[in-house]
């Protein structure tokens, strides 16, 4: 295959990737949105739509910007096939991105080349398959453990999943960004202690707290850029 044939073959391959990616991922999106309604029909308890819209309003403000940023940053690195698969199978930061970076380093492929597109797609597809198999095997093993997990003594553990997550995340994020974290942390603590009724509205309080943190981060980003220049 000469260079011209190679480029034509690769352009056709890329077009096919976009077609399969768009159709396949769209079907999965439809299934993911439809699944709670199918589960609700079986359980005879459909989703509470007013509560859904109220919750969605809070979630959108946080996750839409973050999803857009992730998409803009990681797509050039992942290529077409890698992007469709990585954004469908998830676990981007903790698995797919390091996995692709590792595969690219081993193969020596450069971002934006056909070789990178192939390596990235192969790497993410393999990673997705391995994860799915490991989790599925784990879930099979979990089934006999259900009576143990349902023991009332263990309930405090499952009632405190969120604090358990945020303790670990707080240590990771705060120690690297103490200058950004201090003000929102002090302000939020004082506000919640002064007005305890806000506890039930913590979802809404994420918005001003997140906005304040981003504003502080922007200030330090500009300051750092000025110093560099």
């Amino acid at each position: 295959m000469n260079n011209e044939q190679k480029l034509k073959y690769f352009a056709d391959y890329n077009n096919g990737t976009h077609t399969i990616g768009r159709i396949g991922v769209s079907l999965i999106i439809i299934m993911l949105i439809g699944a709670p309604f199918v589960m609700g029909t079986y359980l005879k308890a459909m989703p509470d739509m007013p509560a859904f819209w109220a919750g969605l309003a809070q979630i959108l403000l946080i996750w839409v910007p973050s999803s857009m940023v992730e998409f803009l940053i990681y797509t050039p690195m992942l290529g077409a096939g890698g992007t469709y698969l990585a954004f469908t199978t998830g676990n981007l930061l903790n698995m797919k991105i390091p996995c692709v970076a590792n595969a690219r380093e081993l193969s020596g492929a450069k971002v934006g080349t056909p070789e990178n597109e192939i390596i990235s797609t192969l790497s993410i597809a393999t990673s997705a398959l391995v994860t799915t198999v490991v989790i599925a095997l784990g879930v099979l093993l979990l089934i006999p453990l259900q009576p143990v997990l349902k023991n009332p003594v263990l309930q405090p553990a499952f009632d405190n999943v969120v604090p358990a997550l945020f303790g670990a995340m707080a240590y990771r994020y705060f120690r690297k960004n103490l200058n950004i974290a201090i003000l929102p942390l002090v302000l939020m603590s004082a506000l919640f202690i002064a007005i305890p009724s806000l506890i039930s509205s913590v979802g809404f309080m994420i918005i001003p707290s997140g906005a304040l943190s981003i504003a502080i981060a922007w200030y330090f980003y500009k300051k750092k850029n000025k110093e560099v220049n």
Partner: peptide, 18 residues
């Protein structure tokens, strides 16, 4: 993205203090 998470975690820590 880091800042957004810091804001999110700060709000939750505030609620646990309260």
């Amino acid at each position: 993205m880091s800042a957004m998470f810091i804001g999110l975690i700060s709000a939750y820590i505030g609620s646990y203090m309260a």
